[in-house]
Design a protein around this nucleic acid. Structure first.
Lengths: 346, 346
DNA sequence: CATTAGCACTCGGCCCGAGTGAGTGCTAAT
DNA sequence: ATTAGCACTCACTCGGGCCGAGTGCTAATG
């Protein structure tokens, strides 16, 4: 990376060290490494190399006479260059497939995926929900509730239904509402909410003069109905309690901050957003992500898509010291399978 | 309680001891108590009384030479007979009122109430959602989605909207659907889902012979639509992270179990259900509730109602060692204010 | 007779010091 | 370039001693 490349040997040692640390959770020393099969070196030699790695900031010892532990930079190098991915055994694939299942409700699918990620990795599974704004509007319906209150039903994407209540400036008869709804459906069908709003504005401009009252009403009501108020992106998080079992997640206060961030959702969403346009699995290690709360945490994520169109991101959140070689293919596969399942619904 | 009543003095001492323990979190000894203003007794005398209380199972010492700590039974006696409720200061009332606010969306109200409970007590706030089945049906609408799939919209209680997708055995024209919906609306309006199902069955029996095809279809579809599948009771829980700050909540594993119970929802719902028909504030102390996961936890709950009709339960979950004198009036008041706010929506 | 002072005793918490073992860095030999 | 050897560091553990808070019991007291 930084000018001086690592020697073969140094790489091998780093790889072994990280693997060892991940599996044992203890700082690993020169003796331990030298005992390793592939490393046919004396502890002393190993120590020399380790000193180099230490200088490069890839590993460091928590105190004078403990072994070495990978730094964030060390983990990074490891996952980027040294990691040998463990192939998924067949059972896992079909188990994921089965668990995600074939519910007719897309939300069900997303929920199962999240739960599955959590169960299988024993960490927290997260699935970002598709942005609703992107969904194609198919139909608009109005239902009078009580005086001046109207229930708006938006059918999106053939399957998803959203409803909102709006307040109107005067009473409308069911027939009027029906008419307005038809008008809007016809005007906006097939577009997403963003586009629909654009269409409305355009329509308003173009026909400003010839506009009749009904159209004016329609546009007024639609502007309320299409407001993207409740439709911010969101995610499903499953198995956060799993994280409580990891001793190396720092103290309670730390964990608490993390859980609060989960509730806040903002930071996590931003993070997931970052990997929305990445192709394939992406990994954030510790504070590398820029979010302090994620200290001691790594996030392994992958976007999922339907028909080559990016829909959202899913992933796993766990301690930095996680079995990347196992988790990465799981996340990867889950993203693909979820995409497939969603596709079949379409 | 058990035959022998406590003497005045014993009660006073127990009261002081519990209050002391609640505020300090340390086992309290005879000296500490004897120093207390109201207790004009020497440590020795206090010790004698404490020994009695110990024999009665109201207090006990964690080890030979520590002070005494209230047992569950001791807490029970304390909250039932000895507790002097702290009056709410005016600020708190208006702050709760303000925070609950006057959203038009009842779900918003419930959510704010939960959050408010959590914020103000620094523990976990919980609000049980009204049972949907109990809500009065006001209107039924059908919207054709794609072939054989029909969106059912149930308007409940003037305000609440639920939608479900059902599958039909053949295609229906919009007009047909409209007709069926009208029929069902007329048949079931004002009843809750349970009653509605009953009405349907009755209708089916009575008119079995004279029944036309439309009515048969209607009944078939309604039986799908009114299924109470997704409508189990649920609750909103806010501020569980607050619980992580209490040292005396046992170890991490314990807390984890608790959080899992929160996710499971089943146990908590059962517990809340128990106080649905209690009038006023109800308190469950520790495992008293029958749920092991709630060890070291107390639940303070109160039902809330609209027009004298019980709607649901709200409350607070926190460590057994909580400031009951402060929490009880807060829960009480929040239940009342929430009821009021819901009432105004009606 | 209830209350209290006095006393012996218990036991957790804390500090201290010694011993242990894992690990390091350096140097000299191979 | 590698390795053996050596002196050194330092966290961890374990036992002992001390302290203080608290108890139960008994005998004295008003």
């Amino acid at each position: 990376m930084s000018g001086t490349e690592l020697t073969e040997r140094a790489q091998l040692l780093l790889k072994n060290l990280v693997e060892r640390y991940i599996s044992d959770g203890q700082p690993v020393g020169s003796r331990t490494l030298s005992r390793d099969e592939q490393v046919a070196l004396s502890p002393a030699t190993v120590r020399n190399v380790m000193a180099d790695l230490d200088d490069l900031g890839l590993i460091h010892s928590p105190h004078t006479s403990a072994g070495r532990v990978p730094t964030i930079k060390g983990y990074r190098l490891f996952v980027d260059n040294l990691l040998t991915i463990k192939p998924l055994n067949r059972g896992t694939v079909s188990s994921i497939q089965q668990q995600i299942g074939d519910s007719i409700d897309p939300n069900q699918l997303l929920a199962s995926a999240s739960r599955q990620l959590s169960d299988i990795t024993s960490m927290a599974g997260v699935v970002m929900l598709p942005k609703r704004e992107v969904a194609a509007l198919r139909q608009v319906e109005f239902l009078p509730l009580s005086s001046r209150r109207v229930l708006v039903i938006l059918v999106l994407n053939e399957r998803e239904v959203q409803n909102r209540i709006i307040h109107t400036s005067r009473d409308y008869s069911p027939a009027e509402l029906q008419q307005i709804a038809n008008y809007l459906t016809q005007l906006c069908a097939g577009q997403d909410l963003h586009q629909a709003r654009q269409s409305l504005l355009r329509e308003m401009d173009e026909t400003r003069n010839s506009m009749n009252q009904m159209m004016a009403d329609a546009i007024e009501m639609a502007s309320q109905a299409f407001a993207t108020e409740g439709s911010e992106t969101d995610y499903l998080l499953e198995g956060q309690t799993n994280l409580m079992s990891y001793a190396d997640m720092g103290d309670m206060e730390r964990l608490r901050k993390l859980f609060e961030a989960f509730n806040q959702k903002r930071d996590i969403l931003q993070l997931l957003d970052q990997s929305l346009h990445a192709d394939g699995v992406q990994i954030f290690i510790g504070e590398e992500s820029g979010y302090e709360v994620l200290g001691d945490c790594s996030v392994v994520s992958a976007p999922y898509k339907v028909d080559d169109e990016l829909i959202g991101v899913l992933g796993v959140i766990g301690p930095t010291r996680m079995a990347y070689d196992r988790v990465i293919p799981i996340v990867d596969m889950t993203a693909k399978l979820l995409g497939n399942s969603l596709n079949q619904l379409k």
